[in-house]
Design a binder for these strands. Structure first.
Lengths: 248, 248
DNA sequence: TTGTTGTTTTGATCCGCATCAAAGCGGCGC
DNA sequence: GCGCCGCTTTGATGCGGATCAAAACAACAA
């Protein structure tokens, strides 16, 4: 999952770029940046607002500037599964796709930097830099999706919650890397969004969070703020092999 | 899921290419093909044999020539989840990755066309054609992974089985497109492999296949061969929205 | 303050699937 | 033929998480 948020630090450093995201511009040449500049515009969405409906014609691709959004799919009877979590620097949309395949919804207030799709695709064909960067990002997302599949298919409710919290904690503490010391993290998701992410009901999410709290694995400060006294305790609850961190 | 097998017909047509796979060579120039030719070699694996262990150093990337292989992940206590199903023309390995992140295992006898990793990566940097094709493939796989996540997170055992059979049937009948007429398909997977794919136990897989048979949704000819009297009946069991096919 | 609305927690019950166990059923070598 | 082995089916039982229901809580407007 870490892959969904590449390197926030470097992203911020990319000030010469009109888009301001490592997502797209990391290796861009000045003239390429100029062309991106010409086809970009910003849009902001309120929490709960749908950004794109599955089946919509795609007018743009975009890069998340701030906020949190989710890719979701639903079955005919309304059962819903989140299939992508979009955070700042993540890419939205697929070059070459006319019609959206998934719903995209803002979870918190979210700002996108959009690029008109047609000219963006035209540019892609001419600038290997950008398509190579997109390949890298797609492969990172694929890795994340596969970890997520293991979680959905084989983990218990308790392991799922522990995994989600450790994922969020890990990216909140990128560049810090101080294990074995208390960490406190904001959960950017409601209980319902967590249940959509984890393939559970929101009641089960609530119960398991309470259980982890009772067992001293996590502490709660309000509903949306978690304190982790010892990251190793939490990681021991995820069910993952211990060397998982080493492989990232 | 169809994305995992691009266009087998075209793949076969690609006879001028030394690799013989649309996977890599579709748009290659003659000199690029020559370079690929120089770094390729073939390897064949027996059913059940592990091709790559997670944690291994990657010596090659490869394209599946024939057979079936699986990407799998395991939790510390041995619970196992398939996270990728590799069929002819699919790509194995990730450019830029030193160390494998998933186990790769041959399910049936499988032949790979391997490319030494370092020179392949070097070539990638110089040939936009190839990296653009890889981007396309990665995005297809990402779509497939997301459908798979919906299956793992929200579908019932019966829906999972119906989905898997319809996925296999659909790609077996690519280019035919004769709905509402009996189709018969070979299952290239053991019950155990199906359970790894679906996040179930093999007993549940067996029971649900029997149930679908009893209800007349499918017929069985031996253990590994399925007859589908009416594809629409099967699709009605998958839980998916009806327009799923249209979006592909 | 009080009512309203949305989120979260907690409780009681039920069911789908896992688990444990054993019995069919090929295929293959002897 | 025989026995052996791997795969598959079938059966009995138990548990984890879904479901249904209601209470607790926080944010906010009147």
């Amino acid at each position: 999952m870490t892959a969904l948020v590449p390197d926030l630090e470097k992203m911020r450093d990319c000030t010469s770029c009109p888009i301001r995201h490592k997502a797209v511009c990391a290796k861009c040449e000045p003239d390429e940046l100029q062309r991106l500049e010409e086809i970009k515009y910003y849009r902001t969405f309120a929490p709960g607002q749908t950004i794109i409906w599955a089946g919509d014609r795609m007018e743009f691709v975009a890069s998340v500037v701030s906020g949190v959004a989710a890719l979701t799919q639903t079955l005919e009877d309304g059962r819903r599964q989140m299939v992508g979590l979009l955070l700042p620097s993540d890419f939205v949309g697929r070059p070459g796709r006319e019609v959206a395949k998934f719903d995209v919804t803002a979870i918190a207030e979210t700002t996108l930097c959009c690029f008109r799709r047609k000219p963006f695709e035209k540019m892609l064909e001419e600038t290997p830099n950008v398509s190579q960067r997109l390949l890298e990002m797609a492969l990172d997302e694929l890795d994340a999706a596969r970890e997520w599949m293991l979680l959905l298919g084989r983990k218990t409710a308790r392991e799922k919650i522990a995994s989600l919290i450790s994922i969020i904690a890990r990216r909140a503490t990128i560049n810090e890397r101080v294990y074995s010391e208390a960490v406190s993290v904001d959960l950017p998701l409601t209980r319902e969004a967590m249940s959509d992410y984890l393939g559970l009901t929101l009641e089960t999410v609530s119960r398991q969070i309470s259980a982890l709290k009772k067992d001293g694995v996590i502490g709660l400060k309000g509903n949306r703020h978690v304190v982790i006294p010892d990251m190793r305790l939490l990681l021991a609850e995820t069910g993952d092999d211990d060397d998982g961190g080493a492989l990232l």
